[in-house]
Amino acid sequence: MSLKGIESGIEHGSMHGYRQHVMRGVPTRLECGCLQAWQAEQQTKAASGRGGASSAQLRWNNSERNGERGPDNEGTPVHRECPTAECGRVAIGAGPGHTGWVRVQVDGSREPARDFCSGSCASYGIALAELRMAVAVL
């Protein structure tokens, strides 16, 4: 049974209630308190300076916030299962070192240059490096 358009059963006055409004397509009203809960949540996120990212997301991305910086990624292994030995290793020398391998280095990223065995592994490395872009703190 679909709950689209059904207002009964919404937990008014909370973020959960606000999400129920959105999922059901029922407009929020000032009287129910859900809109105020959403506004308070947005203000809390803005005040924390995290831009809505959870602490786990910030750790994964090694984001710089409020002058803090995550650990260097030089010795951090790429967390992806690949059966090829040395896939995702920190780059050494001028080229990838193996024929057909791909070197990934993204300008502005705190992730060091790495060598990958194939295009699909390199795509993972590019995404990881983009997630760890140096973000200017305003």
Results as ranks from 00 to 15, higher is better:
residue 1 M to D: 10
residue 2 S to H: 10
residue 4 K to I: 10
residue 5 G to V: 03
residue 5 G to S: 03
residue 10 I to L: 01
residue 12 H to S: 10
residue 13 G to M: 00
residue 15 M to G: 05
residue 15 M to R: 07
residue 19 R to G: 13
residue 21 H to C: 06
residue 22 V to R: 13
residue 22 V to F: 05
residue 22 V to S: 10
residue 22 V to E: 13
residue 30 L to F: 07
residue 33 G to S: 01
residue 38 W to T: 01
residue 39 Q to Y: 05
residue 39 Q to C: 09
residue 41 E to F: 14
residue 41 E to T: 08
residue 42 Q to A: 12
residue 43 Q to R: 14
residue 43 Q to M: 12
residue 48 S to K: 08
residue 53 A to L: 01
residue 56 A to R: 09
residue 56 A to G: 09
residue 56 A to W: 09
residue 60 W to R: 10
residue 61 N to C: 01
residue 61 N to S: 07
residue 62 N to Y: 01
residue 68 E to S: 15
residue 69 R to M: 15
residue 69 R to I: 11
residue 70 G to R: 00
residue 71 P to H: 05
residue 76 T to I: 06
residue 80 R to L: 14
residue 83 P to F: 14
residue 85 A to M: 11
residue 88 G to I: 02
residue 88 G to S: 06
residue 89 R to C: 13
residue 91 A to I: 03
residue 93 G to P: 04
residue 94 A to L: 15
residue 102 V to F: 10
residue 102 V to M: 11
residue 104 V to I: 04
residue 104 V to A: 15
residue 105 Q to F: 13
residue 105 Q to A: 15
residue 106 V to C: 04
residue 107 D to I: 11
residue 109 S to Y: 05
residue 111 E to R: 01
residue 113 A to M: 08
residue 114 R to W: 01
residue 114 R to K: 12
residue 116 F to K: 04
residue 118 S to F: 04
residue 119 G to P: 04
residue 121 C to P: 13
residue 125 G to Q: 00
residue 125 G to D: 02
residue 125 G to E: 04
residue 127 A to K: 15
residue 132 R to Y: 00
residue 133 M to D: 09
residue 137 V to G: 08
residue 137 V to R: 14
